[in-house]
Structure formats: structure tokens, C-alpha cells
Nucleic acid binder design. Sequence first.
DNA 1: CTGTTAGCGCTTTCAG
DNA 2: CTGAAAGCGCTAACAG
Lengths: 332, 332
Amino acid sequence: MGTVGIREVAQRAGVSPGTVSNVLNRPERVAAATRARVEQAIRELGFVRNGSAATLRAGQSRAIGLVVLDVGNPFFVAVARGVEDVVSDRDHAVILCNSGESPEREARNLRVLAEQRVRGVLITPTDEDLSRLDLLRQRGVAVVLVDHPATGDVCSVSVDDVAGGDLAVAHLLARGAERLAYVTGPLAIRQCTDRRKGARRALRAAGLPARALEDVVVPEMNASGGALAAEKLLSGELPDAIFCANDLLALGVLRALSQAGVRVPDDVSLIGYDDIEFSSAAAVPLSSIRQPTYQLGKIATELLLDECDSPTGHAHQQIMFQPELVVRESSR
Amino acid sequence: MGTVGIREVAQRAGVSPGTVSNVLNRPERVAAATRARVEQAIRELGFVRNGSAATLRAGQSRAIGLVVLDVGNPFFVAVARGVEDVVSDRDHAVILCNSGESPEREARNLRVLAEQRVRGVLITPTDEDLSRLDLLRQRGVAVVLVDHPATGDVCSVSVDDVAGGDLAVAHLLARGAERLAYVTGPLAIRQCTDRRKGARRALRAAGLPARALEDVVVPEMNASGGALAAEKLLSGELPDAIFCANDLLALGVLRALSQAGVRVPDDVSLIGYDDIEFSSAAAVPLSSIRQPTYQLGKIATELLLDECDSPTGHAHQQIMFQPELVVRESSR
DNA sequence: CTGTTAGCGCTTTCAG
DNA sequence: CTGAAAGCGCTAACAG
């Protein structure tokens, strides 16, 4: 396998390696005729630029990292689309990493991204401990928090989860629920605790005690987790209404309840969170809290690239969107 | 930002750069005491190895590429999980790329992967034209086709789509359907044509002419595509049964039909393909054709890494799984 | 507008 | 078991 480098191309086109590099990176600085010769040589030789060499030279690559909690969750897929669209406009690449809600995997992912010398990282952290990010930031890698509000010297783009939890539970209460359950993933996940905080606020506003809302914690925020939660609920006295920390959980709850002969919303009301596409198509169309997912990814990426491009004259900002209640059959 | 390289670590630990490299890559060849000193220096300095430099030196990176048709499709997400699990066991990384069913984006993705000097590529091609892959293969990059049967000198792992199409339509016919529709994405996509081939085989076996199955082609294999197909179907006389080339399409069809007041399965039977998790939770639980998705990713990756590890003593093989019919409400 | 050149940080022989 | 040194392929600065 003859190594085809910039040297060989240069030789074939009768120019110097520097000129080939210019054709690749700043074509406008090369005379049209020379450029054409070089481009032909590139084609004939099947030359493909060595990205590692370029990255090594430049000190950083033309890529950013995106670390999400669950690639299997359509919520994050939608965010990723927003990221992808902005990034490819600017001729960068996205390295998509999945932490699977595990801090250890998150740390591994961050190390790989650091090794790859990405320009920046978009991340939905697995927990409150942001010290893992310092590894990156100290090295001059820009970081933007996605779906996680920041407090200080870092950009973030998020949605008001307290408001969302409030919205969801206020709605259930308005429909007459008195005993509620909150089905959630690990409480180390910020989204989970914030949504609960909002739920409790709604309870207080209605004059109900916090114990009117029972927590059902499961290890994974997916349909299996939901099924597990439903089992727990079925083993006791069913509540009037169930608020799930995301739609995947709600879908799992819905299925398990139906199989047990419990009717939604007649026997129990149900509301999810995220308003993923599948929710409206569920056996019982699911009420949910909608978030501007694509926007989340888009804005976060713009913030990140802005920080990369002018590390000095960049003011960190925390952007927070408001969620929206979507009422469907499951809580009607 | 003080650049912390292997040099600085070496200096601090009082050893040579070569020794630090050995600690990183072949720790067993370094005396325990020396190793401990080096590891401490690494920690104290917050050293992170420069992956580009290592890749440049090695000629290839410890990463493989995975190019899928649609990251938004749970089918590919499941495949990706299989890939991820094998790869991380072997201390490699996955670069996930989305072609979005577009040959142009596929070509772009492949170029990036070539530039990154990945060891190998797993790909579900957008069309029959595999020449785009030669760019890689000529450069010694191993390639395995995923969900796409190969014919010759390349590995592939796939599921028998002709059998799947046959299974689906034979089932619909057995339930008494006489006029059918096939809702599909672009026929350039192999899966789409193979499933149709199987469908027609079932028709023949039942003594029906090929025209008993009307094609409804939409540009994208997702829920919007399905809605579009439903519109077309509603503008004419509805068939007895609808076979969709994947579950996302079927879900879209289901929703659009329901909104138009058409009842499934009473007015029209419906079956999808892939048996994604959401299908069983749909408004009308969806019949579908199940494929061993996780296995697909797992086996493909094992084949790929095998080829990478012994490029010479590697025999290409084409593995084909059989799909399975799953009957639910939508065609009962 | 084009050529020359000096590394980017790491790994890997080859000596010691 | 450890050190010295060459070079992977590319780019950017400077000279012509």
C-alpha cells in the first residue's frame, strides 16, 4: 500500500508540498492553473489528507464532542440533530458519545475527547459534579452544558425543569388527583430532582402536603424502568395519577399497567416528559411536557463555536427555555 | 496553557520520554517503581496523551466508523449498542456517522473516516453502488456491510429481507387481504426492494398477480413519510392491507389513518418491519417483522476487528439471519 | 504566487 | 530495564 502523502501529490503536480497544502486549505491563494494541476494529481493518486497529522500540527481538531445521557432516547437524538446541522454548516465534525447515565462512562468519554483534542464539548452531565469537566476546561477546551443550567463561568442551554414539573402536576391536580406518584430515574440526575421540585411546588400551591406525591425510583430512564416502576405501584394501592420523569418511562408504565388490566386514564391518569414523537402515537396518546429540543442543540452549538472562535471576547451565558404542557388522552 | 506532553512528564519523573511511552502502552516492561513515579507525574501534571500524535505515528487510530442510514431509527440505535459493547471491550472507540439515506452524505462521512485513519468501517450503504467503499478498502481499511448482504470479497451481516417481506405479506393474505399496498422509502435502498421482492413472492405463492400490491414510495422512511403515504392512500380507494417497509413508516401511516377516521385493523390491516420497541406500545399495537438487531451489530463488529487484526489470514464471510413474524392487534 | 523548512507529540528501534 | 534519536504527514512562517 503505497503511502500517498502530500509529498507524492506535490511531486506529481510538479509543485512543492506547501502549495498542495495551500490548495487544500486556502485555495484562493493559489493560481487557478496550479490549483487545477494539483487537484488532478490528488484525484489520480486517490490522496486523502491525514487528519491526525493536521490535528497534531494545529494543536486541535475540527471536531466537537457531544456527550448525551442516552442515545436511545429520541429527546437526545433531536438535540443531536440540532447540533449536527450547525456544525456541518461550519465544516466541523461531531463525535457523539453516550454516557448511559453513568459517571464512569462519562469520564471515559471525556478522556477520549480530550485525547482527540476536540475544540469543544457539549455535554448533559450525569450528575452535579462538574469537576470532571475541569480536565477539559483547563486545557482550553470550550464546554457548554446542554439541558443543564449552569450557575457560573460556563455557558449552558436548558429548559426550566422546575416549571415543567409544576406544569405537569398542576395539571394532574386540576383533574382531581389527590394521591400521586412520581416515577423517576436516579435522583443524582438533575432533571429528575428539578422536575420533582416543580411537582412539589404545584402540590404546595394546591395546599397539599409533600407526601401526597410518592417517589418511585428506578435505575434506568427507559421503558424497562417504567415497567419496573409499574410493578412496584401495582404491589400497593394505586395512586390517582402518575407523573413520569420522561416519556420512555411513561410508555413503559403505560404498557405494564394495561397488561395488568389498569385503564388509563380511567383508573389512573398519566403524564410523561419530553413529548417525544412516539408519545402521541402511543396506545393511549400520552400527555407530556414539550421542550424545544432541536433549538437546544442548535443554540448550544452556536454558543460553543462562538467560544472556540473568540476565547477571550466571549461572555458566558446561561439560556433557559420554558417548557409547554401538551394534554392528550392519558390525562383527560 | 502550558503544553503538557510526554516530555514534561518524563522530566518530572526523572526518566526519558520513551519510558513514559512504555508506561502508557506496555506497562509490564517497566519496573514497578519507575512506573509508579511516572504515573504519579502523569496525575500531578494532568497529562492527557495526544491521540493525533499517536495515530500519526501508528498509521491508524484505535477507532472504527459506523455509518447508519438514520440515527433517529431505533433499529440502528440497537445495532449501535451491539457495536459499542464489542468495541469498548477491546478498548476501541466508535465514530458514529449518519448518512440520512443520502449517498452524498455517505460519501462525506466516508471521507472523514478515511481522514481519521480509522481501522475499519461498518456501514449500511445507501444504495447498491459500493464503489464509494473502494476509497477505503484500497487504503487497507477493513469494511463490513451491516444489514446488507454482500456477494463477494467483503464481509457482511444481514437479515433475509426477501423472507421478511414474504412473511409479512403471506400473513396479510392469510387474513384475507386481496388488495394490498406497500409503503416504502426510495427503491434505491436495498432493504426496500428486497422486502418488496419477498412480498411479491408471497403474492405469487397465493396465486395473485403482482399488481395486487401497489407501491407507495415516499422520500423518507420515518413517521412523516408514513403520513405522506397515508394521504396518498386516502386519496384513492383504500386497500385491504398495508405493508410498510419499516415501523416508523407504519406508525406514521397508523396515525394519519386514525385521524382520517379509518380503523385499524377493521378497515385496513397494517404491518411494519423491524419491531422497534415503540411498535408494541402504539395506539394499535403493531404487527411487525423482528430482526436480531443487537446481534447484527455485535457480530459485524467481531468480524471487522477480526479482519483488522489479521488482514491476511481472514476469510470474508457473509452471514444472514432469518427474521421473525410478530403478530399484534394491527393485523388481527 | 510558490518553495523551503522547522517542528507538532508520540512511538519504536537500537544501544547501553 | 532505560535512554537517545529518527520520523510519521502536515502546516505556517518566511523568503524568494
